[in-house]
Amino acid sequence: MDGERLVETFVELADTLVDDFDVIDFLHMLVDRCVELLDVDAAGLLLVDHQGRLQLIATSNEQARLLELFQLQNDEGPCLDAFAAGTRVSHPDLANAGERWPRFTAAATEAGFAAVDAVPMRLRSEVIGALNLFRNESGVLDATALRTATALVDVATIGLLQQRSIHHHQVLTEQLQAALNSRVIVEQAKGLVAERLQVDMDTAFAALRGYARGHNLKLSRVAHEVIAGNINTAELLNAPTRTTPLRR
């Protein structure tokens, strides 16, 4: 594991007191770094909405099959279990998970995943969501990676809940509701871009994100401007090169 990169990640996760803090960008950073640092193949983060539904906020990639895996977990799956129990849920070999989660296991296997871990986003008695890690090879997640994942999720949770006055639920509600809606704007923009440029959703998302990074803008802002017609979709493919290369 890249120690320097890990330290850098913790510093970034703790940096939530900035004026232009954006929940979506923040949680995208978390899932990307999980894939980068923990030797997992995909990661996604679900937050619970006001009606107790788990909603996808960020994933390391946007393939339809992976999105389906997250959506399924409102009915069954490791994220739902981790969220409900407030504890980590792991399954090192999905070939044997069919009884526990029949639909989830079938979909995960079809998507090429063999092992799964889910870590709740929890602070004391409050659980606000869960991180899901997927691996292509079966086997128990390395103990160091597991500890690191838990620590990253804990720091992120504290970051999100840091306005811990007695009325912090109001601030949290404002932030989470806005983030959930921003995620919908991103989906709408993906569709618009996919159709205009005749590309798939994953490519459309990469284009939006590349533009956001290249212009130092929030992803949700770029999605909004594309829908409003203020950013030309054709321009998305000509994003300037990042000053720091995206490390994987």
Partner: peptide, 20 residues
């Protein structure tokens, strides 16, 4: 809560050249 519904909305907006 289904992301594909929103993706499809975006695609139809482009196909019909209308708002979301």
């Amino acid at each position: 809560h289904n992301p594909q519904v929103h993706q499809a909305t975006g695609m139809v907006a482009a196909q019909l050249d209308v708002g979301m």
